[in-house]
Write a protein that binds this DNA or RNA. Structure first.
Lengths: 338, 338
DNA sequence: CGGTTACATGAAAGCGGTTACATCGGAGGG
DNA sequence: CCCTCCGATGTAACCGCTTTCATGTAACCG
């Protein structure tokens, strides 16, 4: 077993030509039944497997879908990836992954990946393109779909959650429970990647307040770096004030968990002294009992992948934006204002 | 911009031959500095990018590492994947991913993926090969490394955690705290994928008990399907007995979280009434305060990928088994027996 | 000043498939 | 009975790159 069999070897052994073998193995109707059988037999005997590289070169297709995802290990990313995998699992496409955790990597990938020579389609997850690449991406000959990337993707095909609506939902829920002062803990709006979810969720928060004829107090909004510990510190500060909000909406579950930790530190009982709502509905919510806004993560990945496939395979025009509506999931961290 | 430029176009425009362009672009020292500059210039003008398929076919390499991973969305898997990505990020290899959640998929992948024509190397994560494939894998011409797969990989290169030692560590920790009756909640030992972690951790548990001159009571061991809810039910039952263990070692963090839920249901205070130790050290442990056994997930992925790379690139003989030792992480769910 | 040598470049043969086009034998029609 | 046409197969070009081997040139040497 020194060298893998090629289509040539099969042809020789089966006593037919290359072309016939290729046709037979690709199920062309032009090959007589008997010949086909013989060829398949020989192919198995020789343990033949076609070279993907050769096939791809010849076909002029890469048979590959490239996924560029930011912060692969965040639970959201993994869940979306599974949705993508589900959509691709029974297709002929291979799934190639690039993980982005730095701006440099992002820039590099946006410059080098959207090429016909590299991939048949690009799926970009949770990563808005940098300004300088937008135009090129619009004119790209490679189909691209963005999932969970709002900024700079207006004229590109994308699947989005409605963060504003989600923020409104969360805040509304708290207001309905009778809370008058609702705090907000989120990411700083400006960030190197151009993530907008915190900003948009905040917008929904403001809108809900406005609809109730309210406005947030300056000190009820705390923004900082993403992360549980950072959120805990922010919340600690906010809650130490004796004149504090009775509810907090956090821009992500991770941050909501930080808020919960802060409450615990301060001896505040949840939900009696403080109600908390998060965002995303990651797995941890369930066992912590965190009320949150559910994005349909798996679904967003699946739909993104399907959009991309239909564009690639059927050359269908892509609807510009698919929006997936969030929903509120009530658990144990929210209750009526006491 | 109807057709992407090929190396031919560059050659033509630069007034040199194909060969020279290829050499120039691949940094061969054989090309005169001036020529090289001109070629690079023209290449940029034409926005040239080499076809990967053609390159791969010509080189006879796929420049691809294939990762087969079970249950991609489990936090462990994602973290390991990140380790793999880290090791590969600056290499020339693309990362192709196959997610396995059914036995059928597993069988399919083990049969079709380990081929020179498909990939330069295979990294199998948390998925022991089925019996019938072991021999073929041993004789495979594609370098393969297993990560976190014990069964059927004895004669294959692999990176393993020491589950027995981990189980012993966890149990020892509880014994040192003065607990006399330590329960075990884990997965059924038999399962379609051949996972062995629960069994091995149990073995460590027994060993620690034996070293302390103890033996577990029949009713202190509960096995069932993996999952938080399943574990909660098992623990509920075990803890309802008035004559119950004062500590429980769970075979995974997920299950430990179930045990905690059961304790809460029964009004048992942790750690005063019950100590709980998990396994894995997933992210949730930190905010729940769960004492656990840390496997070095990121590290295991990284080392697996590196092993594979060195085998591929330098044709180094692979050390058979790399074992990564677990360590105990003390948090708030364990305390002295009261 | 002719011959060797080192260096830069070109020509062409792959890599392993797919497929347009040519070919050939036999069935059907006039 | 010959011509046409069709279905099955073969031939060869091509996909775009790498690399061996040949070639030309200029520098170097005795």
């Amino acid at each position: 077993m020194t060298r893998r069999a090629t289509i040539r070897d099969v042809a020789l052994r089966a006593g037919v030509s290359l072309a016939t073998v290729s046709r037979a193995l690709n199920g062309s109707p032009l090959v007589k039944e008997g010949t086909k059988r013989r060829i398949v037999e020989v192919a198995e005997e020789l343990d033949f497997a076609p070279s993907l590289s050769a096939r791809r070169l010849s076909l002029g297709k890469t048979q590959t879908i490239t996924v560029v995802v930011s912060f692969l290990t965040r639970p959201q990313a993994a869940e979306r990836l599974r949705g993508i995998d589900a959509a691709l699992a029974d297709s002929e496409f291979d799934l190639v992954i690039y993980n982005v955790e730095t701006v440099e990597k992002r820039n590099l990938y946006f410059r080098t990946l959207p090429l016909r020579q590299r991939t048949d389609g690009l799926l970009v997850v949770s990563l808005p393109p940098p300004d300088e690449d937008v135009l090129r991406l619009q004119g790209s000959d490679v189909p691209i779909v963005f999932v969970d990337a709002y900024e700079n993707t207006t004229r590109l095909p994308r699947v989005l959650g409605d963060d504003v609506a989600g923020g409104e939902l969360a805040t509304q829920h708290l207001l309905e429970l009778g809370h008058r002062r609702v705090g907000f803990v989120g990411d700083a709006f400006a960030n190197p990647f151009g993530f907008t979810s915190s900003r948009d969720r905040f917008e929904g928060y403001e809108r809900a307040l406005a609809l109730a004829g309210r406005k947030h107090a300056q000190e009820d909004v705390a923004l900082g770096a993403h992360g549980r510990y950072e959120a805990r510190d922010l919340a600690s500060h906010m809650l130490s004030n004796p004149d504090r909000p009775t509810a907090i909406f956090a821009a992500s579950d991770t941050q909501a968990l930080g808020v919960l930790a802060a409450a615990q530190d301060l001896g505040l009982h949840v939900p009696d002294d403080l109600s908390v709502v998060g965002y995303d509905d990651i797995e941890a919510c369930d066992f912590v009992g965190l009320t949150t806004v559910r994005q349909h993560l798996f679904e967003s990945g699946r739909q993104g992948a399907q959009l991309l496939m239909s564009e690639i395979v059927r050359r269908e025009p892509i609807p510009r934006s698919v929006v997936i509506q969030p929903e509120i999931v009530r658990r144990r961290t929210t209750g009526p204002r006491k």
